[in-house]
Design a protein around this nucleic acid. Sequence first.
DNA 1: GCAAGATCTGACCATCCGGTCAAAACCCAT
DNA 2: ATGGGTTTTGACCGGATGGTCAGATCTTGC
Lengths: 201, 201
Amino acid sequence: MPRPKTRIQIRNSETILEAALDVFSAHGFRGATLDQIAEGAGLSKPNLLYYFPSKEAIHQTLLTRLLETWLDPLREMDPNGDPVAEVMGYVRRKLELSRDYPRESRLFAIEILQGAPRMREAIEGDLTALVAEKAKVLRHWMEEGRIARLDPVHLVFSIWALTQHYADFDVQVRTVLGEGHDPYAEAGAFLETLYMRLLAP
Amino acid sequence: MPRPKTRIQIRNSETILEAALDVFSAHGFRGATLDQIAEGAGLSKPNLLYYFPSKEAIHQTLLTRLLETWLDPLREMDPNGDPVAEVMGYVRRKLELSRDYPRESRLFAIEILQGAPRMREAIEGDLTALVAEKAKVLRHWMEEGRIARLDPVHLVFSIWALTQHYADFDVQVRTVLGEGHDPYAEAGAFLETLYMRLLAP
DNA sequence: GCAAGATCTGACCATCCGGTCAAAACCCAT
DNA sequence: ATGGGTTTTGACCGGATGGTCAGATCTTGC
């Protein structure tokens, strides 16, 4: 089964990945079982393994897809745009990603937390390269005096940390806030203030 | 074995917890095995279970200890001190915690990521209460015009997110920064700037 | 409507893992 | 040194889990 071709193959592959995302993001790789994924996908376990050669392969497929989604908002940061607006836009898009794809965020977090055993090369390659490229853009803006002088890489880290926190620590955030709060709306306002103050030259 | 009493009991219990922290923080609860912990502690598996009744019990002991360490720096924030200095002090202490106890940070992160199945009540109780108390202090400082008006709870979240990021995503941070960097020193400087700008009234 | 291929399944296997237990080894006060 | 309690261990158990396989069932192009 190199590449899905028939309609059934496409549909079932997607169903499996969807169910697997649920299970992997909730329990980690080791904590997830094929039976749980099969249950979630409404398929039998041997049928899962008809579409994917192994548990590992399902996980790998999810991680590969994930990284693209993850880096896109940063890629969109335009070197020719208005510096503050561009950074603010990135913050906003990244927060939306946390809000709309919390399972992906958690899957990624679990992987990195455990030392990125199945993502090392992607991080060393694409991710590092993209950050280096965008750090250069940020540094340029700083030299022009259009945003405050800061360590550009740590600036990016701060955006990652602050936005992913709301997806990854969702339980804690909601518990501490209590009832009657919209975490993401509040986070959006808070981060807006934070970065406006931080970036002002 | 209700409470360790003899010297051997104390020594072995500590050795086990130390090894268990290594393994749990690296692989999560489900990913950790008693054999790995036993290996790390230099004891046989049945001998582990002479000191702790179950894998679960070892994990629980670690989590309970952890929460204390974790909340202490926030507890130390003094309502009668200088507002900016107090918040900056908390940021610094929390970052030191990430630097000096990264395994504890990851253990905590994994637990929350997975929905805090074994920490719910602690989060709903002690943690939420402490944050509420300190949020009140922060709000008071804001009303006095001594620090900027912000959502105090999200301010605390931001401190957690930014400091824990360096422990939890250590692999990513080091990979992206490349050789010749001291992540925590740089983070200290960056966060100093960030919070000085954010808190200025 | 009928092969030929694609899809699906029940039964099964080997391994891993948390945990038990009886007995051995060890420690120490008398 | 000896006896009673403490500590340690090899052997083992039962259930879970990733994965296999032979064959049954369904789809589809003709």
